[in-house]
Amino acid sequence: MKLKYPLIAAFVAVLGLTACGGGGSSSGTSPSGSTAVASPAQLSYTDSVVGTGATAATGMTVTVKYTGWLYSTSATNNKGTQFDTGTFSFKLGTNSVIPGFEQAVLGMKVGGKRTVLIPSSLGYGASGTSGIPGGSGLVFDIELVSAQ
């Protein structure tokens, strides 16, 4: 009779441990196979090169070179999947780009290079857009080519 209770306790412990396992994945993807969505808490940026030219201000037309990645807590420098790269011009203060991108360019000097972490709320928000899942934070490397 003395052995009965320890055997029951051991059996319950084994059942409990087997019920905890299985089904999980540590690959950083959701069950559907898509990349897990993450977002930085707030807008932040780091200048790798401080420019020496004109300072970008509201009302100016700026030209930028950029590369954009989905924000990832597990990727080097938070640069997950790259979604776009290119050069384009836009007028500051006209809401023609996502708010986080515009805020990041304001105050840059021509020739400057900046890495920007943009939370979902200042990016594409809960709905996302083509190639960018809803709720995703973004990382951009931006170079200010001109400001007029």
Rank of each mutant, 00 (worst) to 15 (best):
K2V: 10
L3P: 00
L3Y: 11
L3A: 11
Y5M: 05
Y5N: 04
Y5E: 04
I8K: 01
A9R: 02
V12P: 01
C20D: 03
S25T: 15
S26M: 14
S27M: 09
S27K: 13
S27V: 08
G28V: 00
T29G: 05
T29F: 14
P31F: 09
P31Y: 09
S32L: 11
S32R: 11
G33V: 03
G33I: 02
V37T: 08
A38Q: 08
A38W: 05
S39N: 03
P40K: 00
P40C: 05
P40E: 04
Q42M: 04
S44F: 00
Y45T: 08
T46R: 11
T46K: 14
D47A: 12
V49K: 12
V49R: 09
V50A: 09
V50T: 15
G53K: 02
A57N: 05
A57K: 09
T58V: 15
T58W: 01
T58E: 12
G59N: 11
M60F: 00
T61C: 07
V62R: 06
V64R: 00
W69C: 03
W69Q: 03
L70R: 12
L70I: 13
Y71K: 10
S72F: 03
T73S: 13
T76D: 14
K79N: 11
K79I: 10
T81Y: 04
Q82K: 15
Q82I: 07
Q82M: 15
F83T: 01
F83L: 03
F83R: 04
D84E: 15
T85S: 10
T85V: 06
T87A: 07
T87H: 04
T87L: 09
F88D: 11
F90M: 08
F90Q: 01
F90T: 08
K91V: 14
K91W: 03
K91M: 08
G93D: 07
N95T: 09
S96H: 03
V97K: 13
I98D: 12
I98R: 13
P99F: 02
P99E: 03
F101E: 02
Q103G: 04
V105Y: 07
V105K: 05
V105R: 04
G107T: 06
M108N: 07
K109E: 13
K109V: 11
V110H: 02
G111K: 07
G112P: 09
K113N: 10
K113V: 15
V116E: 02
V116H: 01
L117Q: 11
I118N: 09
I118W: 10
S121C: 11
G123H: 00
Y124Q: 04
Y124C: 07
G125N: 10
G125E: 06
T129Y: 04
T129E: 02
S130Y: 13
S130P: 05
G131K: 03
G131H: 07
I132T: 03
I132A: 02
P133N: 13
G134T: 02
G135D: 03
G135E: 04
S136V: 07
S136D: 07
S136I: 06
G137T: 04
D141T: 00
E143W: 05
L144C: 01
V145Q: 07
Q148D: 13
